[in-house]
Design a protein around this nucleic acid. Structure first.
Lengths: 339, 339
DNA sequence: CTGTTAGCGCTTTCAT
DNA sequence: ATGAAAGCGCTAACAG
């Protein structure tokens, strides 16, 4: 069926070893032979069998990446960053989407383990340190993405979520907001950190309240549901600002308030999101947000992984600082004084 | 390093053949033996080596998918659809992002060929029929995604882009627009088809003009650039409607007109996009669009691929019909009559 | 510079 | 029901 080195060798009148050398170390082969072999390769349309190479090498030339949600532009950006860095090393990225589901996450880790990937980049759903420790004990290092490693057992590339939450709420408070609602799924680590930062910022000023509106996911749909609950309240019990745990949620809240309801943003309610995805700027009301260097995260994560593959002993924790991006959704409007 | 079936066999006191049977056909092995083997597997933490299985099987358990742009939600939705269908068959999806670059596209096809994937799903940048024919001759079938096969040589799953373009412009014309601008990269097949449909619809009504504003990609950024060009024109030379080749472009145009300019949408200029991505509904001005059944496309594409893998001789062309979704960006506003 | 060969881990006959 | 052994395609070590 498929042509192998053997066929190439036969046609070129050399041994398989020589074919292999032409493929991997052409310098070690006489120019005339190289040509003859390449000719045969061309003629037969020979394509290396990766499975055989992997079997021989003991591991594949790919890196597994498990993200929480492929539909979230933040993660596709991270993936892009990782891909670019990996390509430079002639490695490819296997992208897995856990969709916040521990079973799916575990499925991908199984798959990656079976594939003997070079290493795994993961934004864990679950607390998976034991799982990752097992991987490592089998020679597959892991780097946490968008999540700090607890005991420093793993290298990680993350963004200071507490600082991000603080930035967001401090901004809301400074622009005069007092009754702040935090919208997000409290089961998620990053979200909890953002909430902690938010609480801290709220606590720094008298008279600021912070309530939590729980959602079950970080999606536009969930945001819309949360927004509807806010919209349906008595105006006097409504928050005057919403800090959403990510932009998808924020966009959903925005939809519910502005498009499906009659609440004005930012006049009645200010909204700030998190991630600063491309779509944030193009929203109904352009969305203020907390920017994370997403592609850079992917890039650095691969770098740390490769260092570990190459035997680096120290685990490194890279923590980027987030950045506040102010847009119309949190504008200090003149209109508010009317009330 | 890694534990193999041999180690498991040794610990369980059986032969490797039996271990393999326990793994693949447990029914053929005595219950007591099964238990003993599974115990050994557990104890040793044995994990199958995919490379070895693939080598043996002659091909991998994955399907390659090459898309034009991972950052475009349309394609991540397609990927999701494909992944779901593939998972049901115990196959995984290898996602490649060509980024509209023939070199990258070709790189992924090389990679997939080396991996001996089950098949390839691709939205081609280039005209790659010869490349795909070669793949097929090597036993790797290909299915075109979001693109009809020219001579019917390949199965394909697409959406009738001519009809979509027609729907969009007919809608604009019916809501009173007369000077329509089509925004998009004319080098792309799907875009050309949408343009053709647009031209047809424009021709069906006296006094409707259709100009083409060329962009170099289907991105928000390119849309913004195009929007700026429109914004900077004399109001009387401005189109009164824009049909953007996809939602990313449309969102960019919208940004340029509304947020960075002072053109009102839809009062001065109506905008309609294509794909109906989630973010369209949440845009500054909720975007009218042409909806495509994206997840279904991925799902069906895998189905056609599997049929071909299983020896189906006929190539099938699945063509879905697009659907018009009207939102505020093309509202027939009372305001227009003022002029 | 080139050839020979062992072996990576697994599955699958073919015997027993 | 289980075992023995061949072989998938490739690479690297060694010999010549």
């Amino acid at each position: 069926m498929s042509v192998s080195v053997k066929d190439v060798a036969a046609l070129a009148g050399v041994s398989v070893g020589t074919v292999s050398n032409v493929l991997n170390r052409p310098g070690k082969v006489a120019p005339a032979t190289v040509e003859r072999v390449q000719d045969a390769i061309e003629r037969l349309g020979f394509v290396r069998n990766d499975a055989a190479r992997q079997l021989r090498a003991g591991r594949s030339r790919s890196i597994g990446l498990v993200v929480l949600d492929v539909r979230n532009p933040f993660f596709t950006d991270v993936a892009r960053g990782a891909e670019g860095r990996a390509a430079a090393e002639d490695l490819s990225i296997l992208l897995g989407n856990s969709d916040d589901d521990p079973t799916r996450e575990s499925g991908y880790l199984d798959l990656f383990e079976q594939q003997r990937v070079h290493g795994v980049l993961i934004t864990p759903v679950d607390d998976v340190p034991e799982r990752l420790a097992r991987l490592r004990s089998r020679g597959i290092p892991a780097v946490l993405v968008d999540r700090l490693s607890e005991g420093g057992d793993f290298s990680s590339v993350s963004v200071d979520d507490v600082a991000g939450g603080h930035l967001a709420v401090r901004h809301l408070v400074q622009t005069g907001r007092r009754r702040i609602a935090f919208v997000g799924p409290t089961g998620v680590r990053q979200v909890m950190d953002r909430l902690e930062g938010a609480r801290r910022a709220a606590g720094e000023q008298e008279g600021v309240s912070l309530e939590v509106i729980e959602t079950s996911a970080l999606s536009v749909l969930e945001g819309r549901a949360a927004g509807e609950r806010i919209r349906d309240r008595d105006p006097q019990h409504r928050p005057d600002a919403v800090f959403a745990a990510n932009d998808l949620l924020a966009l959903g809240v925005l939809q519910a308030l502005v498009m499906l309801g009659s609440v004005s943003v930012p006049d009645d309610v200010a909204i700030i999101g998190y991630d600063d995805i491309d779509f944030a700027a193009a929203a109904v009301v352009p969305l203020s947000s907390i920017r994370q260097p997403s592609e850079l995260i992917g890039d650095r994560a691969v770098e740390l992984l490769l260092a570990e593959v190459q035997g680096a002993e120290e685990r490194e924790q890279v923590v980027f600082q987030p950045e506040l991006v102010v847009r119309a959704s949190t504008a200090t409007d003149a209109g508010r004084s009317r009330r």
